[in-house]
């Protein structure tokens, strides 16, 4: 447990150091940059609420990847599942008019099921044809991207305004998530994200099915021995993974986006992977690292204006953090070498 908490912390510190060196080489001031970055992320009420707003979809996408990992699957398809969820939920939001008490839950349920169904397709291909989910999820991302693009430039295109942007009409006001902190953009999606995190925790650590999926993810042979079905695990895992990503999509269009827009999620899906890995797939870890990554995104603008450091530096930083997380054997090697040196010293004396 301590190990699980220490490595990500070391990775973040090491990445900050490496990135600082790169900034120095580029002739930029890393201290000023980091200072403004921090201010921009957590320095004011508005900064914090922006960071939390960013963290909501990030956390849901991270859960999407983490669910896959629990079941032993590498789900790189959060992007696609997110768009499909957003499309289905968005259609409900745009074309139906219901009281908010019905409308909002309906969108979320439809979005979850649609994203989940897109995930089920991956599980089906794996169970039936042995198709590696790693490749199929990447492929299906693009299918979803182009499907969204088709719909927002064709059947669902906004015809009310004169502009020719690839976007749908606005969702009904009854479908909008309410602002929970007046004067900011922070919305009720935060509660949903917390609920999702709680569900993730309860499902995997408190229910028999979640337990069985974890066993299968860690040791398929043991699952087989205990009579658990790996195929069923794959279906449940991918449905939940897709569902969480679908929720992320819905939440975005019910809040900051207000409508379906071509490629609105950008790198959200892959950032989720990074967040889940940094958080070591634990509920608390994911919560912390999603806020950290969202803070990097949120603080980047301030860093750019006040420190004259391009905002894209934060992506460099995120990439390097991930490299250190994934290369944690590096620290083990270092540790082992030190220990060996220590033993040699002891032997010598």
């Amino acid at each position: 447990m301590t190990r699980g908490a220490i490595y990500p912390a070391i990775a973040v510190i090491a990445a900050l150091a490496v990135c600082a060196v790169i900034l120095l080489v580029m002739g930029l001031d890393p201290v000023l940059a980091y200072q403004k970055l921090f201010q921009g992320a957590f320095g004011s009420k508005n900064a914090i609420s922006e960071t939390l707003t960013h963290a909501i979809p990030l956390l849901l996408c991270a859960l999407s990847f983490a669910v896959g990992v629990q079941g032993g699957l590498i789900n790189l398809g959060a992007t696609g599942q997110l768009y499909i969820g957003a499309l289905a939920g968005g259609a409900v939001g745009i074309y139906l008019h219901l009281p908010p008490i019905l409308h909002i839950p309906l969108i979320l349920v439809v979005g979850f099921i649609a994203g989940g169904a897109y995930g089920l397709l991956i599980a089906f291909l794996k169970n039936r044809f042995g198709v590696s989910e790693l490749i199929s999820t990447i492929m299906m991302n693009y299918v979803a991207i182009y499907l969204l693009n088709y719909l927002v430039t064709g059947p669902m295109k906004d015809t009310s305004s004169a502009n020719n942007l690839p976007q749908s009409a606005l969702i009904a006001t009854t479908a909008k998530l309410s602002i929970i902190l007046p004067g900011t953009r922070l919305h009720a999606g935060l509660y949903l994200a917390i609920a999702a995190l709680l569900f993730y925790y309860l499902f995997f650590y408190k229910t028999p099915l979640g337990y069985q999926i974890r066993v299968g993810g860690l040791n398929p042979d043991a699952a087989h021995y205990a009579g658990f079905s790996i195929e069923k695990n794959n279906y449940v895992t991918m449905f939940l993974a897709g569902g969480f990503a679908g929720l992320a999509g819905c939440v975005q269009i019910m809040s900051v986006q207000s409508r379906l827009i071509h490629a609105f999620a950008k790198e959200l899906g892959f950032s989720g992977v990074a967040v889940a890995l940094l958080g070591n797939n634990t509920p608390l870890g994911i919560a912390i690292s999603s806020i950290l990554f969202a803070g990097l995104d949120g603080g980047a603008a301030k860093m750019q204006t006040l420190a004259k450091v391009p905002n894209a530096v934060v992506y460099m930083l995120q990439g390097i953090i991930l490299m250190f997380v994934v290369g944690q054997e590096m620290f083990n090697l270092f540790h082992r070498r030190q220990r060996r040196a220590g033993i040699k010293k002891e032997a010598a004396t």
């Binding site: 580029m26 892959f270 990074a274 890995l277 992506y315 460099m316 990439g319 390097i320 490299m323 994934v326």
Partner: peptide
């Protein structure tokens, strides 16, 4: 050498490159 997960390392490289190229 470090036997890191190939997919994640690739992803890390992609995220890094997205930032690095813009900054440069």
């Amino acid at each position: 050498s470090l036997r890191a997960n190939q997919v994640v390392a690739g992803l890390a490289l992609n995220i890094f490159a997205g930032g690095f190229t813009v900054v440069m």
